[in-house]
């Protein structure tokens, strides 16, 4: 091998090693930076997480156009991918502007421009995560999360239950419905506890999923108009041939 070619190859190998070493570090760091803390929510219309970090150029235009200063850009010491926008519901929740200025200004499509109706946003999902401390679960009528919900009676309803403890009162259970909740975080912000009992967390964390083969019998029945399986067999009732001589014992101490 002639000297010049040898030199070129050695030099290239050296440069490739230097760049490769930096790349390895960056790659490993980037992998870890994909795990965002659950209380950090993305702006409305944000693509699902790995795709969002491919699309967002960290320009901060959504932050600038947010009229309520809800959105922040992650700084290098935050545990969120450096420079990407987020908000913490307990600090400043999303006010759900009708014209969605943050989505409108996004130049790259990291905030999906096909989101035209803010009620369809899915920034996260509210979960009444601490049922032990929720005032309504303790039997009080707090109802604050329900009252502040921008989609009241759709995203949060109050479900009536019998109070087993007092035996004579009703309890009104705040219940979140995932088909309507946008994850704006107003409920979490408004929760009167020291630490909110209702929290907005990323949807993929909050949602379970039925097995694909599961069918809800009553739904299927409604769709087709009749039960999918033949009606229950009506077996003949076997009656005693003659009246029994069995006498029930009188109840002890029973006074009508």
């Amino acid at each position: 091998m002639d000297n010049k070619r040898r030199q070129f190859l050695t030099e290239s190998a050296k440069l490739a090693c230097q760049a490769g070493l930096i790349g390895l570090g960056v790659g490993i760091y980037a992998r870890q930076a994909q795990s965002t803390p659950p209380q950090a929510l993305r702006p409305p219309g944000a693509l699902p997480e790995p795709a969002f970090q491919a699309a967002c150029v960290r320009c901060g235009l959504c932050v600038r156009d947010c009229p309520y200063h809800t959105l922040k850009l992650a700084q290098s010491l935050d545990l969120i991918a450096n420079g990407t926008p987020f908000f913490i519901a307990r600090d400043i929740p999303c006010e759900m502007c009708d014209d969605i200025p943050c989505v409108k200004i996004c130049p790259t499509g990291a905030l999906d421009p096909s989101l035209k109706n803010i009620d369809k946003a899915q920034m996260g999902l509210a979960v009444l995560i601490d049922q032990e401390n929720c005032l309504n679960f303790l039997g009080l009528r707090c109802d604050v999360c329900y009252r502040v919900c921008p989609l009241i009676d759709k995203a949060i309803t109050l479900n009536l239950q019998h109070n087993q403890r007092t035996t004579k009162h009703a309890m009104f259970m705040p219940t979140v419905h995932s088909n309507a909740c946008t994850g704006c975080g107003k409920c979490e912000k408004a929760c009167v506890l020291e630490i909110a009992a209702i929290k907005v967390i990323p949807r993929q964390l909050a949602r379970g999923e039925l097995g694909e083969h599961y069918r809800l019998g009553w739904e299927e029945k409604r769709k087709v108009g009749h039960s999918l399986i033949p009606d229950q067999l009506d077996l003949p009732d076997r009656m005693p041939d003659k009246p029994s001589d069995f006498q029930p014992l009188p109840l002890q101490g029973f006074k009508p």
Binding site: A16, A19, R31, A33, P50, N82
Partner: peptide, 21 residues
């Protein structure tokens, strides 16, 4: 080489990895 590497890590990780640093 670092320029090429930054594009390669973007491809491999599927994120703007270089922009983190």
């Amino acid at each position: 080489w670092i320029l090429a590497m930054s594009l390669l890590v973007a491809f491999v990780t599927g994120t703007l990895a270089w922009e983190l640093v």
